[in-house]
């Protein structure tokens, strides 16, 4: 109220916030991230265009990582159908579909809700297969430990230059469908050059889900990330325990 003369007029006040518009999503993502780390789970947000080969890469990952004895899990998002989740189940990855309706991306809340239906705590590596889209998923933190983008050799050498936000967000790019290179006018070195112009640390692995090329390097990359996050050697008996009192402190060294 105007207190100068007591006239009762309303006042216009500027309220400074300087807050991220996605602050709400980021809070839920932090919550998801804490849960993944507490449970010793490496969570990977797998993004890429529709048809880049995200599901095929995961099927091949299950085969390539078989000797590791990892327990894998996944949620797979599409606007409609549970086809990808069914494919992943068949490949030996316990999975649930998230159908997003009209939404072009996953957000942290959608992932959080999906986790309630899955034994994700019992997994070692958990994949969040995002909606096929090179734009919208890039800006939504889901609580993953790493963003990985699948880019197929059929998509064009300059794709990274056209979608810089997606590749800036990526820790690793899997250049997929490498078995098709001999049939295409595509130069993998040109894709790599484009990546170096949008990623300050352009890490990439050339893979083929069909021939298995590069998958050992991809599995080794996942293993290295698990080591870096201190997720290796957790006590199996702790899997499934909820919100430990005193958080990390009560976990036996393993």
């Amino acid at each position: 109220m105007c207190t100068t003369c007591g006239c009762g007029d309303t006042e216009l006040v500027p309220v400074e916030l300087h807050e991220k518009i996605l602050a709400g999503n980021d809070r839920t993502a932090r919550h998801n991230r804490e849960h993944f780390l507490e449970a010793g789970v490496l969570a990977v947000n797998l993004m890429g265009s529709p048809g880049a080969g995200k599901t095929a890469v995961l099927e091949a990952t299950a085969r390539a990582a078989a000797s590791k004895g990892w327990r894998l899990g996944a949620v797979s998002a599409d606007l409609a159908t549970d086809h990808d989740a069914v494919r992943l189940e068949r490949a030996g990855i316990p999975s649930r579909a998230i159908t997003t309706g009209q939404a072009c991306h996953l957000d942290a809340e959608l992932v959080h809700r999906a986790l309630h239906d899955l034994p994700w705590r019992q997994t070692d590596v958990f994949f969040i297969e995002n909606v096929g889209n090179l734009v919208c998923p890039a800006i939504y933190d889901l609580g993953q430990a790493a963003n990985v983008v699948v880019l197929s050799v059929t998509e064009g050498e300059d794709k990274p230059l056209k979608y810089p936000v997606m590749f800036k967000a990526a820790e690793l790019v899997l250049i997929s469908k490498a078995d098709l290179v001999p049939h295409l006018d595509v130069d993998v070195a040109a894709i790599e050059d484009a990546l170096a112009r949008v990623m300050p640390r352009p890490e990439r692995i050339v893979v083929s889900a069909r021939t298995g090329e590069g998958l050992d390097r991809w599995v080794a990359w996942l293993e290295r990330r698990r080591l870096e996050l201190g997720l290796v050697g957790r006590i199996a008996g702790l899997a499934g325990h909820v919100h430990p009192p005193g958080a990390r402190g009560d976990r036996p060294a393993g």
């Binding site: 309303t10 807050e19 800006i139 800036k168």
Partner: peptide, 20 residues
Amino acid sequence: ARLVEGSDALILDAIDLEVP
């Protein structure tokens, strides 16, 4: 390279509110 602050900003800076 390092991204200069603000390059990827998506920020609500201020709101003008009419208060009693």
